[in-house]
Every structure is written in structure tokens, then in C-alpha cells.
Amino acid sequence: MLEWIRGLGRSGFSFFQTLGRSNLFLLKMLAGIPSVLVRPRLLIAQLFSVGVLSLPIIVVSGAFVGMVLALQGYNTLVDFGAEESLGVVVALSIVRELGPVVTGLLFAGRAGSALTAEIGLMKATEQLAGMEMMAVDPIHRVIAPRFIAGFISMPLLAAIFSAVGIYGGYFVGVGLLGVDEGAYWAQMQSKVDLYDDVYNGVIKSVVFGFVATWIAVFEGYDTVPTSEGVSRSTTRTVVYSAFAVLGLDFVLTALMFGD
């Protein structure tokens, strides 16, 4: 019994230690940002591996989410004779919620886990230590470019997801289910507000990008330098990022869309 309590205390302690480490890490990383801007090559390479390589899954998911939304939305709305409002349903769901959140989750799964594994492997093969001994700060050279790349990519990917999703909904709703084309766009345009919906959605995706990339990069840097340690860190990245994205989504939604 006592052992259990002690164990609980120890994990509580280590939780706070990790929290503290991750915040100190964040400060060091932010301090390294100016040096990245001086070497755009590094940033571009990372934007490619983090952003461009995530495009396929984002586009495909966006299309399917939009199409499914249109299908489900139509089925429900048609009972109320309100199928002309399909555009509104699809657009608001995607722009406000599904765009930022699903992109955040997919990003954490694809780009986040890749980042953790890559950095973790560099730590396990002593490349980070080697850099330190060569008087090159690995946080400035390896971590910071990846962080900025993630932070920039997320809102772009979320916007692409939303746009593709709305057109996916158009394809199913107007193309397959016979909703009036004019009604689809017109109702959407009158109900979707640039500031309340689109802008807030973008803010959400920026926040998610920040947090998901931070978690991915930190887990890689903090990993136990064995192959088992790296695989566990990679799993942790995906799980913690998912928690963070969903939790922050709730908080942000309450702040933005509550009264």
C-alpha cells in the first residue's frame, strides 16, 4: 500500500520534472529561432519533410471528411426539408472544428511521430552529443528548424483540408445528391463569418501546430537513447498530441464560440 503511494508520488514528481524540462526546452528553442532565419536552407528542407510530405494524407482525408459530412448532413436535413442548408452544415463543421482538429491529429500522427523518431534516433546514435562536442548547439541547428517548419505548416495544411473538404461536400451534395448549387454556396456565404469562423479556425490550427510540434520535438530530444526508448517516445508523441489538440480545442471553442 505504502509502495503504491510512493510510486504515485514518484510519477507525480517526474511529471512535474518533465513539464519543467519541456518548458526550459521551449525557451531554448525559441531563443534559437533567429539563427534559423539566417539559414533558410535548413528551414526549407524541414518544410519539405514536415509539410509537403503530409499533403497527400491531408488532402485525401479532407476530401473524404467533406464527402461523408455531406452524406450524413443531407440524410438528417432532408427530414426537416432543410437540405438546402447543406452548404452551411458542411462549411461550419469543417472550418470551425474538423479542419483544425482532424488536421492536428493527422499531423501529430504523421509528421509528429516522424519528427520524434528522427530526433530520437539522432540522440541514440550520439549525433546530438557529437554536435554538442563540436560546439554546435543541436537545439539551434536540429530542433529549431523543425519546430518552425511544423508551426508554419499546420495552419496551411488545415486551410487546405478545409477547402478540399468543402469542395468534397460540394461534389457529393450538389453533384450526387442534387442539392441546388446556388443554395449550397449562397447559404454558406451568408452564415460563415470571416472573423468568427474562418479566422478562429486559423487561430486554432496555429495553436495546435505550436503544441503538437513542440511535443513531437521535445519527446525526440528527451528520449531514452535506446531503440525501445525511441519507439516509446514516438508513441507518446502521438498520444499526448492527441490529448493536447482535443483538450485545447475544447478550451478554444469555449472561448471563441461561447458567449
Binding site: I44, I152, L156, I160, Q189, L194
Partner: peptide
């Protein structure tokens, strides 16, 4: 690589434009 990254950014900005112009009540 540079070309594709440029295209990614252009696509992202274009998507934001579409959202602003075609989807929302801005226009």
C-alpha cells in the same frame, strides 16, 4: 525540394483565400 515547398505555401495561402472569399461572408 524548394519548388515543392513553394507550392505547399502557395496552396495553403490559396486555400485560405478560398475560405475567405468563397466560403465566408467577406465578399
Amino acid at each position: 525540394t524548394e519548388l515543392l515547398v513553394g507550392m505547399l505555401i502557395a496552396a495553403g495561402v490559396a486555400a485560405l483565400f478560398v475560405l475567405a472569399m468563397k466560403v465566408s461572408n467577406l465578399s
